[in-house]
Computed example of a mutant assay.
Amino acid sequence: MMLVVGIDPDTKKHGVAVVKAGIIQQLYTLGNKSLIELLTDLARQHQLRIKLEDINAFKPVIQRAGQSRNQMMKIAQNIGAVKYAAELLLQELAAVGFTVEMVLPLQGARSGKRYKSDAFNRLTGWHGKSNADNRDAAMIALYGQPKGGVSGIFTGN
């Protein structure tokens, strides 16, 4: 049976979710090396569909009412760092032969960052601990769609 792995990229450790037949099997927070080891282990026994949130699909950061220029610059720098980390992860996954589907960031009710753990558990049936990043990864695995409905597949070949 196919497993869907959702990844919410971040600068140090990524939110990761493994989903089988629409049911969350496991949530992780992993660095690149540990993530590649996990995927390699999973790929020995399962077909994988890897969904990586396309951080480049986020709109540019613009000045928001009530936030200083320095606050906005900090947000922009953080987004830039995550974009770089996501690109490095994509390159590392491709280098070891994984195919990655770039999916649009989730908005509204499907964004895992919107939910606290108790609401996320009620919504998804998950019973374990979670954080905002791996909740978002779970929602990416469950609901992430490629831009325009066309698969944004990236392979290292």
Rank of each mutant, 00 (worst) to 15 (best):
Q26S: 12
A65Q: 15
Q71A: 15
A94M: 14
V61K: 11
N121D: 08
G148V: 04
T124E: 05
P9F: 03
V100E: 03
A94H: 03
N121T: 02
D54A: 12
I75H: 09
K13S: 13
L89K: 01
Q91P: 03
V4K: 13
L38P: 03
V100R: 00
M73G: 02
A76M: 01
G22D: 07
N32G: 08
K33D: 14
L142K: 11
K74A: 11
L106D: 03
M2G: 08
D10N: 13
K13V: 10
M73E: 14
L3H: 01
K83H: 06
K129W: 12
A57Y: 11
G66D: 04
D118A: 14
M102N: 07
L123C: 00
A57F: 09
P9Q: 09
R114L: 10
N70E: 13
Q91G: 11
I153P: 03
G148E: 11
N78P: 04
K59D: 13
N56L: 08
L48C: 06
L35I: 01
S34F: 03
Q77A: 14
N134Y: 09
D41H: 15
K74H: 11
Y84I: 02
A21F: 06
A119I: 07
M73F: 11
G66F: 08
N131V: 07
S111Y: 00
V82R: 15
Q45T: 08
H46R: 08
D118C: 07
A109D: 02
I62Y: 09
R122E: 08
L123T: 00
P105C: 02
P60K: 00
V150H: 13
T99N: 14
P60A: 05
T155S: 15
G31Q: 09
R69H: 04
G156K: 10
E53H: 07
D136C: 05
Q91C: 01
I75Q: 12
K12Y: 09
S117V: 13
D41G: 15
L90I: 00
A81L: 11
I36K: 11
A65W: 05
S68N: 05
Q47F: 08
G108N: 10
A94N: 04
K20R: 13
Y84F: 14
E92F: 10
P9Y: 08
L142R: 01
L93I: 00
Q26D: 13
A109S: 13
V150F: 07
R64C: 01
N70R: 15
M1C: 05
S117W: 01
F58H: 14
K129Q: 12
F98M: 00
N131S: 07
D118E: 14
L3V: 00
S34N: 14
Q67R: 15
Q47N: 12
Q63H: 11
I36A: 05
V103I: 05
T99R: 07
T29K: 12
G152F: 06
A76T: 12
L88W: 01
V5M: 09
D54E: 11
G22R: 06
M2E: 11
M1K: 05
D41Y: 02
Y143C: 04
A57R: 14
K33L: 08
H127S: 10
K113P: 01
Q107M: 09
E87H: 13
E37H: 09
Q25G: 11
A132F: 02
A86F: 02
D10E: 04
I36Q: 06
K113Y: 08
V19R: 10
